[in-house]
Nucleic acid binder design. Structure first.
Length: 302
DNA sequence: TAAGATAAGAGGGACAT
DNA sequence: ATGTCAGTCTTATCTTA
């Protein structure tokens, strides 16, 4: 459950108790149970005020512009009836002008190869979003990265699904949203290594500056799946900090590292947890935990 | 049954050819 | 471009307490 200090008010009961469900990504009111579906939220008018006090006058309305829509939500459709605003049929000369406009309009929207590609990719991204429960700004970032990749012609010859999945993964990394390559691979139905390859390509070619995944973040994620006491968590974090200072953690899978620190902490605190449980929660194997565990343990002793 | 050991294999980075 | 090397992680199987 994510609770930040600017909790929005419920539309129905007015209480400041709107929360985000971690699993579904839906917004709901903790007081009255009102649920805002992701879709309605994304496509509805934007009633956000730009005034400091968050007052009641909307600074703008209309559908939000978004990178996750292939034309950023700025499309217009010229209606197919050849009528003018008052409903009268158009004059012949005007009619042919409108025909031409309509042709160009639709071409500019989706009929160029790049746009078609983008359309499809963003469609996939949209499907992905529901499965991995991702916040809107991460989605925006993913879409942005994909656009960049398209510009640099990196998608050519590669699968769109893999590339959009890699973009999403990159966006997660960038925003420190803890999602593993595996999480995304499962959701996208693409092999993990394919996404990994694409991600590396993006990383290299777009020169993305990624924050290093902090194993300490992973501790929270793993322990949320198990019943871990605050004390145990803190000890695990301390162990990780020590390991980082000794540069012991470089090049190791942060998830594996966090998992074994947590395991070590459980052992030290007399909590009975099996390696299997932790391995499963962390999405790594028991062997990895054992290997890291050995390293961490010898460090503990001096 | 959980934990530890061992072996084989995959995938990728660094570096040399 | 291609090959080799050291290192990591995974999967599978076996042993130990």
């Amino acid at each position: 459950m994510v609770v930040n200090n600017s909790v929005p008010s419920c539309v129905r009961c007015g209480k400041k108790s709107m929360l985000i469900d971690d699993v579904t990504g839906e917004q709901f009111c903790a007081k009255c149970g009102f649920v805002v579906s992701e879709k309605a939220d994304a496509s509805g008018p934007e009633w956000r005020s730009f005034q400091k006090d968050g007052g009641s006058d909307p600074a703008r309305t209309g559908a939000p512009s978004s990178l996750t829509i292939h034309d950023m939500g700025l499309s217009t459709v010229i209606n197919p009836l050849n009528k003018d605003a008052s409903g009268k049929p158009l004059a012949a000369s005007m009619k042919s002008t409108i025909e031409r406009l309509r042709t160009w309009d639709s071409r500019s929207q989706a009929h160029q190869p790049v746009d078609r590609n983008l359309r499809q990719a963003l469609g996939e991204l949209n499907k992905l979003k529901d499965k991995v429960a991702i916040s809107a700004n991460v989605l925006e970032k993913a879409a942005y990265i994909y656009r960049k990749a398209l510009e640099k012609k990196l998608v050519r010859g590669r699968s769109i699904s893999a590339m959009i999945a890699a973009s999403l993964y990159a966006a997660c990394r960038d925003t420190e949203t803890p999602r593993t390559l595996r999480d995304i691979a499962d959701a996208a139905n693409v092999k993990r290594k394919d996404i990994a390859r694409c991600y590396r390509l993006l990383h290299h070619e777009l020169e993305l500056k990624m924050p290093v995944v902090d194993p300490i973040q992973c501790v929270a994620r793993i322990s949320s799946k198990l019943d871990i006491t605050e004390k145990t968590k803190r000890y695990a974090i301390k162990v990780l900090k020590d390991a980082q200072e000794r540069k012991e953690s470089a090049g190791k899978d942060p998830m594996g590292l966090a998992a074994s620190a947590l395991y070590l902490s459980c052992v030290k605190n007399g909590v009975s947890v099996t390696q299997r449980d932790i391995a499963e929660a962390a999405g790594v194997t028991e062997v990895t935990i054992r290997n890291r565990y050995k390293g961490l343990k010898t460090n503990q002793e001096d």
